[in-house]
Design a protein around this nucleic acid. Sequence first.
DNA 1: TTGGGACTAGAGCGATCACTCTACGCCGAG
DNA 2: CTCGGCGTAGAGTGATCGCTCTAGTCCCAA
Lengths: 188, 188
Amino acid sequence: MTTRERFITSTAELFGRQGYTGTAVKQIVEAAGAPFGSMYHHFPGGKEQLGVDTLRWSGAIYAQLIDIFYGGGADIVSATAAFFDAAADTVRDADYADACPIATVALEVASTNEPLRQASAEVFESWLASFDDYLRIGGIASPRDVSVSVFTLLEGAFLLARTTRDVAPIRIAGRTAAEVVGAAIPQS
Amino acid sequence: MTTRERFITSTAELFGRQGYTGTAVKQIVEAAGAPFGSMYHHFPGGKEQLGVDTLRWSGAIYAQLIDIFYGGGADIVSATAAFFDAAADTVRDADYADACPIATVALEVASTNEPLRQASAEVFESWLASFDDYLRIGGIASPRDVSVSVFTLLEGAFLLARTTRDVAPIRIAGRTAAEVVGAAIPQS
DNA sequence: TTGGGACTAGAGCGATCACTCTACGCCGAG
DNA sequence: CTCGGCGTAGAGTGATCGCTCTAGTCCCAA
């Protein structure tokens, strides 16, 4: 892994746990095992540029997860259930840290940092667009209401699970999400 | 309004926009129009105690909102739709700031500050418990799955709306929430 | 009138913030 | 072997962080 990659992966993990303002640059360079100067060599725009690049990278990683669960002609109802179940296991195993590496940052920068807000918005929109494609393949002609509902169920469940340190909300939201997806498929 | 109250209301608004670590104590005392010493007189525990007290106060305010929409024998399906619609209007009118004064703080402190995490968890749990009561009155015997689903839809929608600066997700989540509530009512 | 607690008021503290600066090691090109 | 630039390396910058400290003001009770 290159130094630049180590910066981004370390930052992604720290952002998921402590958010943007809560993460010090000093902490990032220590986690990346790199000196101070290297960071400003690879990211001349400083913390903000590193934040934007990290959000985009994390977004791409999660987009791959959507492909894994919904790609290959999987049934969209069971794929949804499996996705939430896997998320619940991941959150529990990570001791309720870094459920979604975007959400924490997105909320705190939405009204204070326009470049970061925009990067978050683009990542969310790319997830929804990708999810829409899979829902259409699954037979839902106008999927945006379904994709938004499933997305909000997942993100809200992450919030509740991390705060209460209990994965039950994720499993509950997963069952509801599967029902929402199933109800939107036209019956043959 | 007393000085102490001005501290809490000012802090609540700042937390909703910038989160906990993103809000400086200096900023709080300026917003409250009070001197530095007053803050540490009223909140000897410093920023953390002020944070806990603010979370609890904000939680109580929102609990009143639940009572307004679901109390008085209102139909729980239309109350749910009305709640989300009102939330969408509020978020738009506030220029996408401070949708939920707890969520932003909750995410950033969930893994880093135990007193604040616990306060957030207690607020969320109190909302769910209150909401459960209204759902039971509305005819849902085991309402926890419904209350959690509606909660996650709302919080996820706030996240998406603030990030994309568009209230459409809140309206979409509201329709889904109303359907989830309606589907859980036993048919006579 | 005077004493004392509640509260206001803000200068100043060490620590930490994001960031800049200069110097040096490495390595392929000529 | 020498050169040049890419990247490593970390001490040092002013600004800001949360917080402490002492002094002063207010008002009610004795």
